[in-house]
Design a protein around this nucleic acid. Structure first.
Lengths: 206, 206
DNA sequence: GAGTGTGAAAACATTCACAGCT
DNA sequence: AGCTGTGAATGTTTTCACACTC
């Protein structure tokens, strides 16, 4: 486990996992071809991707769904259950707090933080919003693994610095601004308007 | 223009655009090396990417920023101004409606739709939420180019079908479920919890 | 027969390194 | 001298195709 799976494969693993989750519960096994169809990728790709996780399938038969799900979760580190916090409880931040999908997948949102005193102490998605001053002590107390930045762009960098200072090693940044990479810190940027811009390229212009 | 730029390059074009936008306004020109530093990519990559848009730079000098911005916007189709609608005005949908970044980049959100009668007629981000029944006629009336799906997963497919029926060719799907590809329809999936899952893979497990 | 796992080929993407322009 | 644009080299990802197992 954790040998060194190509990044492109890592990106597809959650996809496979969600395809498997949608299968009927009585179904026991699945072939690479079936899974490929669900995930909308090539079947050789599925076999190659899964082969990085070890020899999971049975020739002539296929893959056992339960085994596969377990192995995917194990590989992605989704068994232990990571804690995450959200900084910036505006519209996007509170949408993320409400977004059930995180808890389902084993990520517990354990804290919400905002620097605006008007927001502090309000309740969002069952959690009380705290001042950002508490991030450092809370991160240690609750062993927070992931920090989610949902602040305006201009505060993204200082928020990231705060998270790193708090000992958090993985950052998911929704602010439309890049964060300076730091040694040992994993950063994923999700810029919602960039997605639209990419779509726009593929629009027919007539 | 629109020759056939590699997908990996297309993904980086919005990034270059946002780097240029953050530059001081008095700056006239920029070298591939400087832009590469801002975008955190290799400088040869920048030159190769930009060369797909034509011969934009001047040897020995660099790139004129205004020209470059124009060309990037032109290539991405961001000059004409596309209209987009959002279906599903839950937490995520209303976060997207409020998200200023879209309008800034030339995408006008012209309609919000929900199937829940309790939400219909409420006002979100300055727009009145309408029933999904209006999607088809509105799409034609307002020449909507992009449909944004922010419904629960189980309604994603039928919403996509509705959008396609309404003549919309580009779909941005935030629901955590894949949509069946259709000939001539561009789909981009953004699954927020998948991003976390990918991060999780890179977390140290000790 | 059916379907995996994987060498080998093909396709694609990145980076080097330098000729050529200003 | 400085910096682009791009062949060529290198690295990575995808796909083919088939030996092998159940």
């Amino acid at each position: 486990m954790k040998n060194n799976i190509p990044p492109t494969t890592v990106k597809r693993l959650p996809l496979y996992l969600s395809c498997l989750a949608e299968l009927e519960t009585n179904k026991k096994g699945i072939s690479s071809k079936q899974l490929a169809e669900l995930a909308k990728v090539n079947d050789a790709q599925v076999r190659r991707d899964l082969s990085y996780l070890g020899t999971l399938g049975t020739r002539g038969v296929g893959y056992d769904i339960a085994t596969l799900e377990n192995q995917l979760k194990l590989e992605l580190g989704l068994v232990s259950g990571w804690s995450a916090i959200i900084i910036g409880i505006g519209n996007l931040g509170s949408a993320l707090a409400h977004y059930g999908g995180f808890e389902d997948k084993g990520f517990g949102i354990v804290g919400l933080y905002d620097s605006d005193p008007k927001k502090v102490s309000s309740k969002v998605a069952g959690l009380v919003v705290k001042s950002t001053e508490n991030v450092k002590s809370d991160a240690k107390k609750y062993k927070v693994a992931i920090g989610i930045i949902a602040t305006p762009a201009e505060y993204a960098q200082e928020t990231a610095d705060l998270l790193v200072e708090a000992g958090i090693k993985s950052i998911l940044n929704f602010a439309p601004s890049r964060i300076i990479k730091k040694e040992g810190i994993q950063i994923r940027n999700v810029d919602l308007s960039q997605e639209l811009q990419v779509l726009s390229y593929y629009l027919d212009r007539s």
